[in-house]
C-alpha cells in the first residue's frame, strides 16, 4: 500500500479574509476542484502536489502549525516582511535547514522551511 498526503485542512471563522491571505500574501490560487469530503471547503494550490483546504467554522479554532517549503527562506522571509507579515521567529538554522515562523491574521502559525541536504553540500 502506498498512500499520499495531499490536503491540509485549515479551519477558519472568516473564510473571505483567509482566502485573501492565502491568495494575496502567500500567492496560492483557488482550485476550481471541490471536495465533497469538506462541505463548502475551498481548495488552494500553488502548483505543487500538496493543497490547502479552507473550511469555515463558527468558532475560533487553533489549527496545527502549517509547514511551507521554500527554496530560499531569506528571500521569502523578506518578501513576506514587505507585505506586513509579523514573524515570530526570524530565519535561523536547524539540522533540517533554514527555518522562520510567522502568524496569519487569525493567529495560525506557519513555518517557512528551506530544507538543506548537508550531506551533499
Amino acid at each position: 500500500m502506498k498512500l499520499a498526503l495531499v490536503y491540509t485542512c485549515l479551519k477558519v471563522n472568516d473564510i473571505c479574509s483567509a482566502t485573501q491571505f492565502l491568495r494575496d500574501i502567500l500567492g496560492f490560487e483557488e482550485d476550481k476542484f471541490n471536495l465533497d469530503v469538506f462541505d463548502g471547503g475551498l481548495v488552494f494550490t500553488n502548483g505543487e502536489h500538496h493543497k490547502i483546504v479552507l473550511v469555515e467554522c463558527a468558532e475560533e479554532v487553533q489549527n496545527p502549525t502549517i509547514l511551507l517549503l521554500t527554496n530560499d527562506c531569506i528571500r521569502d522571509y523578506h518578501s513576506l516582511l514587505d507585505k506586513g507579515i509579523r514573524f515570530t521567529k526570524t530565519p535561523d538554522y536547524t539540522d533540517n535547514g533554514l527555518i522562520a515562523e510567522f502568524l496569519d491574521p487569525f493567529g495560525n502559525c506557519y513555518c517557512l522551511l528551506e530544507e538543506r541536504n548537508y550531506k551533499l553540500n
Binding site: 530560499d72 531569506i74 535547514g97 533554514l98
Partner: peptide, 24 residues
Amino acid sequence: KGDMWFNIMNLQTQLHKDQNNEQL
C-alpha cells in the same frame, strides 16, 4: 560548505536576476 554554501548560492541567484532590492 553547509549553510555558507547554500546562502551564497541563493545570493548568486538573486544577483543574476538583477533585482535591485538592497534590503534583501
